[in-house]
């Protein structure tokens, strides 16, 4: 997790954008899970995948 990761900042910025209300009762739990997600994101970011954009799925056009 980046040392400067600020879960409260993420909540304040994104909850309103998405129309989500996160009250004082939920905030500690949401902060805990945001920090955990940030740790996971750091692992994902560190994977040496190279400068590619190959996703795990391919879109298949739907024929009539």
């Amino acid at each position: 997790m980046p040392a400067d990761f600020d879960a409260d900042l993420v909540i304040d910025a994104n909850a309103a954008l998405l129309g989500l209300e996160i009250g004082p009762e939920q905030r500690p739990g949401v902060v805990q899970f945001l920090k955990l997600a940030a740790q996971m994101a750091a692992l994902v970011e560190a994977a040496p995948i190279g400068d590619t954009l190959e996703l795990d799925g391919a879109f298949h056009p739907v024929a009539p």
Partner: peptide
């Protein structure tokens, strides 16, 4: 709380 966190990522 897990769903809420996931929505914000």
């Amino acid at each position: 709380d897990r769903f809420l966190a996931g929505a914000l990522l």
